[in-house]
């Protein structure tokens, strides 16, 4: 019998997750979700409009402005209300990153890997379109999508840069930094994931993420907060990177609450600092979202 690479990989990764305490099937799904754009409308106003179009929405209890789409007769990415920027399509767990960082109008914020801008527009809304929101991305094609999103959503407080944020001098230090790092992703939002990914990819991404983490700490002012997130379930890109950060930078982790579980403090037989439990994991079997990891880092 011939076993495909996809099946071998699937078993390999599912075995790893089992070792981390979760029996996943590899078939978990996340429902479509939208986030209301409070720069342009209120939840009540847009809910009334969408309900009149026979769209059934359910509020996500742990999100400020996030709703799961239970039923819709048309694509929510191509409605007049979407084009007007009254809402955005955004996966539920991914909304939790900017919500946890919770920037306000007094902050100077850096979004390090910003494109295509879902979290950037969300942070602009938290900031009430005030303060300064710097958004950087290295991929020019994706930066075009970011620019479109800022225009569509009515964002007025941003400065967008195209370039490599690890080597960039932006002329200021930031009170809040969001690093939603490029990562290996997960199978919930990418049906072909098991056929594409290997453990070598995970290690390669972890190296890139450490370079980005060092840059994030450099861009922060003392006492400033970094929100690190990935949509990867792999500890090398998450808890092990946080352990590395605590050993190599003057920083500590603040506790994150929410659905899901605390970050892991034992990974494949390796004991990590207890402080890592302040980070947070969305496991697809528990939260019915994609896999997601968050850590709130404060620079000393």
């Amino acid at each position: 019998m011939v076993v495909s690479r996809e099946e071998t990989n699937k078993q390999f990764f599912l075995d790893r997750y089992r070792e981390l305490g979760h029996r996943l099937t590899g078939d978990e799904k996340t429902p479509q979700a939208i986030r209301m754009n409070t720069i342009k409308t209120s939840d009540a106003e847009i809910m009334e409009t969408l309900t009149s179009l026979d769209i059934k929405l359910t509020i996500v209890p742990y999100l400020d402005h996030g709703y799961v789409v239970e039923e819709s007769r048309f694509s929510l990415g191509a409605s007049i209300e979407y084009l007007l920027g009254l809402y955005s399509l955004q996966e539920s767990a991914s909304m939790y990153a900017a919500q946890t960082l919770a920037p306000n109008s007094g902050d100077t914020v850096l979004d390090m890997c910003a494109a295509p801008g879902g979290k950037t527009t969300q942070m602009a809304a938290y900031m009430g379109n005030r303060g300064q929101l710097y958004a950087v991305d290295v991929d020019r094609r994706r930066v075009y999508a970011l620019e479109n999103n800022l225009e569509r959503c009515g964002v007025m407080n941003s400065l967008v840069y195209h370039g490599d944020v690890t080597g960039m001098e932006l002329g200021t230090r930031f009170s809040k930094v969001l690093l939603d790092a490029p990562c290996s992703g997960n199978y919930v939002t990418d049906p072909g994931w098991f056929g594409k990914r290997s453990i070598e990819d995970v290690h390669r991404n972890a190296e890139i993420q450490r370079r980005l983490l060092s840059a994030a700490v450099r861009h922060l002012e003392p006492g400033g907060t970094l929100l690190y997130s990935t949509c990867s379930l792999e500890p090398e890109e998450n808890e092990l990177n946080m352990e590395w950060l605590l050993r190599n930078h003057e920083a500590f982790l603040e506790e994150i609450d929410g659905p899901g579980e605390k970050g892991l403090t034992e990974v494949f037989g390796q004991r990590l600092s207890e402080e890592i439990s302040n980070s947070h994991r969305f496991w697809p079997n528990m939260t019915h979202t994609q896999g997601f990891f968050l850590a709130k880092v404060v620079k000393k």
Binding site: V143, L159, Y161, G163
Partner: peptide
């Protein structure tokens, strides 16, 4: 603010 690499503002 720096103008180097700036593609969008305000």
């Amino acid at each position: 603010f720096s103008r180097k690499g700036l593609v969008y503002a305000g």
